[in-house]
């Protein structure tokens, strides 16, 4: 899921919870509480799923990043790439399949991070 796909829906929804916050002033106690509650319900109904999805993707990117800098820790040689370059020509036909496996919903990061 790319950010471009998400953006229109954000523009649409992002005004909703902030509207709920308008009644922050202590004047109408019950009314503002009600507004707040409605805001939270709407957030839960409409956005929570999306936010979770975004955060999950964010987590995957984070794991990817960690892999890129600490790959050695898991046995992935990162720098210098001298030997991997030498082997790359042999690996080229398999790279696509390897990537696919790596990006799968259940990959090895699930094993590590539970």
């Amino acid at each position: 899921m790319t950010s471009e796909l998400l953006l229109p829906s954000i523009k649409f929804f992002s005004c909703v919870p902030s509207l709920a916050c308008v009644g922050k002033e202590k004047t109408g106690g019950l009314l503002s509480k009600l507004k707040g509650a409605i805001g939270e319900v709407m957030y839960g109904a409409a956005l929570h799923g999306q936010v979770s999805a975004v955060l999950k993707t964010r987590m995957y990117i984070e794991h990817m990043f960690i892999l890129m800098i600490l790959g050695d820790m898991l046995g992935f040689p990162i720098l210098p790439p001298y030997y991997s370059l030498r082997l790359l020509p042999y690996a080229v036909p398999n790279v696509q399949a390897w990537k696919h496996r790596f990006y799968r919903e259940r990959d090895f990061t699930d094993v590590i991070y539970g």
Binding site: S3, L6, L7, I10, F13, S14, V16, P17, S18, C21, Y43, L47, Q50, V51, V54, L55, T57, R58, I61, E62, M64, F65, M68, I69, I78, L79
Partner: peptide
């Protein structure tokens, strides 16, 4: 290598931004 890392990091930041806007 640094270029790539930056790219990934910027992507992560984009998602932070989206999550922020969704949660306002």
């Amino acid at each position: 290598w640094v270029e790539k890392l930056t790219e990934v990091r910027e992507k992560a930041r984009e998602y932070d931004e989206i999550a922020r806007r969704l949660k306002s």
